[in-house]
Design a protein around this nucleic acid. Structure first.
Length: 904
RNA sequence: GGGCGCGUAGCUCAGCGGGAGAGCACUGCCUUCACACGGCAGGGGUCGCUGGUUCAAUCCCAGCCGCGCCCA
């Protein structure tokens, strides 16, 4: 037992306890006989540092795992970091740039060695920060998505999925990121509306053909003029009569002079513009489908851009010389192919100007119509994505999505809150093939080898591939790596040793709960379900809990570029990790984003200080660690009452934790500690501390404080561990203490007595405050109309009334003449003779106000009760309650009336 | 265009069929021997609007207005 310092300083205890827990192996105590309980941490990027979203995500997980550990489970929280292909490669490349070097100055092997070097030196900063937050992860088995075991797992998964026909190689349009020069998946594309233009062009009809109206060209409109260099058709709607006569005929493309067919396709919207659209299958997803329907093979589709999306020559004479090497569109103040196409079209008389009238009625001509364009951007590079025709590896996501959907439907996977199910199904039902190859160097290299003819062999290693290809065939491995999410999707089982049949794997898969932000529902959660179910044959987790975003105080999304981020470590420095954690829990109501509110963090720091001081009080009064897990025997009502309140609180807390209502759990413990334990219980036992009941009070107070520390520990691990030890000798740390088991019932009699006592003291205080009686004044009270039971209570609680209520003496004698304050509580009325101290009119006004309120309530209840429909149809409990409430309010009104009459 | 969610006290949020709650902020009193990061008392809301269902609606249903997010 150590004496608590007068001021609570979180920083003074946090580091010490964390190091202690970790050194003692208490994050994963050896419990071979216990039921396993498992949660895996969404592996943060190895490049990352702790942001406020991590603080939320990890606090919630830590609350659950600490709770389960205290329930005696073999609780495992798997932790590790993600190699984060693109992000990490970008970090290292940026460092090279600072030294005027670039990736391609090095061989692949040299570059990868540099990344590993960076990882060893600077990576994983976040793991230290998670420790500062108090997260009790199993660091002894820390994993990395590129460690040896993971590589083995990833390779096996790729080969197995390939052999199962669920991975294939295909040539089709992908989302190409010209900044990073890699393909990315649909999910990595963010569409933003940006201002753009809509140009209208004339495409002359070939061979002297005209439309029915005599027009010798077709008007097409486009937001991407540059792609006309690779146009392969013009499409019109099959039922569009304006063009029916020219379907099957051709147009001559201006600038290049190439002839392309006019095709009928439902993609063309007759309502939009002229109803005719140019078709560029090599650079537009819709046009790709139109092109396929028009009979073009993917390999025959025209491409005019290189990997950086600059214009290039890919077929003999396809692109006029002056365009070669230009950007797609204006960039860095330099016009690109888009601008040059418009210039040439204008010169050729093929540009149809956009005509508007200004406010004076004057006609204005512009080259193009201003328009907002939904434009795809790469989420990492922020470059405009170019649909590009390449060979890539795809996962047949549609097939893999079947089982996850079935498991969510059957309830084997419970998505919390349920409202996300619809979003989940909507995406899964419309899932597209998942492009998993990336043209990067940092990542899991694809286990496929090619021979000189372009045949490929998918195998676990080169020798297996060689065996497939036959001896003597020269093989080269695929240069690409896998999407980072392909490997993190294996996290729930690969971290446990899969593909080895390890002990941990058998015990801890499926995981119990997964907690993640909803922003990675598709990226990660759904992929774990797909891969877990296919490879393990079982769900990866039984409950998927999705939380929202932590937003800035003004509701804006936090982002580095906006400069409105809040650093969780700064908050920890200022208020302590416990306060930040409690804030996160208290604000986490299911399904709503959290707005940052620093005042509230401060409030929970104050809460920690309150608990600290309450413990100091206990310490100074000989109250210490409880000897028993079960509630001590108690005779005094105040002790029986606080034991009952503890049981009630524990039940509510258990329910909230079971329901994953973190806010409800935090709220429950907060109010018990502050409102019940500190504000009433400790005050009420003060007068007992040197009386006959002192021993019992010490036992009970010590026990209740222990229960508080244990119940609060998952939320505030540091202060509770500190106080746990400060209160007395312990055989174990609180982190591995047993969850409360009071073995006590609710004591209705004690609850009623203390409820009455609290009411009496509160009412007296209110009267004092309203009548400006000095708070310190010690009063004599005359009681009238009291029942025998109440008189007994008054006698029994006289010490508490004196100390807490400042009611020195209770007398059954008639009060002296003169002005007095009158306080009805239950059946009795308490009279404070205050001749000369109070203003009679003030007391009359006070009682009149109370009477008005009581009568108002009574009459509203009366109205309800006199409605026969209510009495007939309402639930009996509701009727009964209304009757009881009415009787109480009516009686209260009567007593108030009598009190007013007595004043004359 | 489709989907989801939100609009409750000045602010941040709970509640979601029986007549409204918390924290912060605000007002008054209190240096009472755990705590001024505190104690005691108090003020403040036609629960976005309009209809409907019901004995009863902040809560359920429909429509509208405003705000946010996701997918096309």
């Amino acid at each position: 037992m150590t004496e608590l310092s007068k001021h609570f300083d979180p920083a003074a205890i946090e580091a010490r306890w964390y190091a202690h827990w970790e050194e003692e192996g208490l994050f994963r105590p050896d419990r071979p006989e216990a039921d396993p309980w498992t949660i895996v941490n969404p592996p943060p990027n190895v490049t990352g540092s702790l942001h406020i979203g991590h603080a939320l995500d990890n606090t919630l997980q830590d609350i659950l795992v600490r709770h389960q550990r205290m329930l005696g489970k073999d609780a495992l929280w798997v932790v590790g970091t993600d190699h984060a292909g693109i992000a990490t490669q970008m970090v290292v490349e940026r460092q090279l740039n600072e030294k005027q070097q670039k990736r391609t100055d090095f061989s692949r092997e040299e570059f990868i060695a540099k990344v590993w070097e960076w990882k060893e030196e600077s990576g994983g900063e976040i793991t230290g920060q998670l420790r500062r937050l108090g997260c009790s992860m199993d660091w002894s088995n820390e994993r990395f998505t590129m460690d040896e075991g993971f590589t083995k797992a990833v390779t096996k998964v790729f080969v197995d999925l390939y052999n199962d026909g669920l991975i294939y190689r295909d040539k089709r349009l992908v989302n190409w990121d010209p900044g990073l020069k890699t393909a990315i998946s649909d999910l990595e594309v963010e569409t933003h509306d940006i201002p753009g233009k809509f140009w209208h062009f004339k495409y002359p009809l070939a061979d002297g053909v005209t439309l029915d109206n005599g027009q010798d060209y077709i008007e097409v409109a486009t937001t991407r003029p540059e792609t006309m260099l690779a146009d392969m058709a013009v499409a019109v709607h099959p039922s569009d009569e304006r063009y029916a006569s020219v379907v099957g005929k051709q147009v001559v493309l201006p600038i290049t002079g190439r002839r392309v067919d006019i095709v009928a396709d439902e993609h063309a919207d007759p309502e939009l513009g002229s109803g005719a659209v140019k078709i560029t299958p090599g650079h537009d997803f819709n046009d790709f489908e139109v092109g396929k329907r028009a009979g073009f093979a993917a390999s025959g589709m025209l491409n005019m851009l290189d990997a950086e999306a600059n214009v290039c020559q890919t077929a003999d004479g396809l692109v006029p010389e002056e365009f070669i090497g230009l950007h797609r569109f204006r960039r860095d103040e330099v016009d690109g192919a888009r601008e040059l196409v418009v210039v040439r079209m204008k010169e050729l008389g093929c540009l149809i100007p956009h005509v508007t009238k200004d406010k004076d009625g004057e006609t204005q001509e512009q080259d193009a119509e201003p328009r907002t364009i939904a434009t795809p951007f790469g989420d990492r590079s922020n470059d405009v994505i170019e649909p590009w025709l390449t060979d890539q590896w795809y996962v047949d996501a549609e097939k893999l999505a079947v089982e996850p959907m079935a498991k969510v439907r059957s309830g084997e996977i419970d998505i919390v809150p349920k409202s996300w199910e619809k979003t989940f199904f909507n995406w899964m039902e419309n899932i597209q093939p998942w492009c998993v190859s990336r043209q990067l160097w940092w990542g899991h290299r694809i286990p496929a080898w090619y021979d000189a003819e372009g045949n490929f062999y998918v195998a676990t290693d080169e020798s297996e591939a060689q065996a497939q290809a036959g001896e003597g065939v020269a093989l080269t491995q695929d240069n690409d790596v896998l999407d980072t999410w392909f490997s993190s999707g294996l996290w729930p089982f690969a971290t446990l040793g899969w593909p080895e049949e390890t002990h941990d794997l058998k015990r801890h898969y499926p995981n119990n709960v997964l907690i993640s932000g909803f922003d990675i529902l598709f990226f990660w959660d759904a992929r774990m379900m797909m891969q877990g179910l296919h490879l393990m044959g079982e769900v990866p987790f039984h409950t998927l809990y999705l939380h929202g975003l932590v937003r800035a105080a003004d509701g804006q999304k936090m982002s580095k570029s906006k400069g409105n981020t809040v650093d969780p470590l700064g908050l920890i420095d200022q208020y302590g990790a416990d306060a930040l954690r409690f804030f996160m829990a208290a604000m986490e109501s299911q399904g709503r984003d959290i707005k940052m509110d620093e005042k509230r963090v401060e409030g929970y720091r104050n809460f920690a200080t309150k608990l600290w001081n309450a413990s100091r009080f206990c310490q100074c009064n000989g109250i210490g660690a409880s000897k028993t897990l079960a509630a001590p025997k108690a005779d005094l009502p105040v002790n029986r009452w606080i034991i009952s309140e503890t049981v009630t609180t524990l039940n509510a807390l258990n329910k909230a934790l079971d329901d994953l209502r973190f806010d409800g759990a935090a709220d429950t413990i907060y109010h018990f500690v502050w409102d019940k334990f500190c504000d009433w219980y400790l005050e009420l036992i003060k007068p007992e501390m040197d009386g006959a009941g002192a021993g019992e009070c010490r036992d009970v107070a010590g026990w209740v404080l222990d229960q508080i520390l244990v119940m609060l520990h998952p939320f505030m691990p540091f202060i509770t561990e500190e106080l746990w030890h400060a209160m007395g000798e312990r055989n174990y740390d609180i982190i591995v203490a047993k969850w409360p088991d009071p073995r006590a019932d609710i004591d209705a009699e004690a609850a009623s007595e203390i409820g009455w006592l609290i009411k009496l003291i509160s009412e007296t205080r209110t009267a004092r405050a309203e009548l400006n009686i000095p708070p310190g004044a010690k009063l004599t009270v005359h009681v009238r109309d009291a029942s025998a039971a109440t008189l007994e209570r008054l006698e029994r609680q006289s010490a508490a009334l004196a100390r807490v209520g400042r009611i020195e003496k209770v007398s059954s004698d008639a009060p002296p003449e003169g002005s007095a304050a009158q306080i009805p509580v239950d059946e009795a009325t308490y009279i404070l003779p205050l001749e000369g101290v109070i203003d009679l009119d003030a007391e009359k006004a006070r009682l009149a106000k109370a009477l008005e309120a009581a009568e108002k309530e009574a009459s509203s209840l009366d109205k309800r009760l006199s409605n026969p429909q209510f009495v007939e149809k309402a639930k009996p409990e509701a009727v009964e309650k209304a009757r009881a409430d009415h009787a109480e309010k009516a009686a209260e009104a009567d007593r108030l009336k009598a009190a007013i009459e007595r004043l004359g």
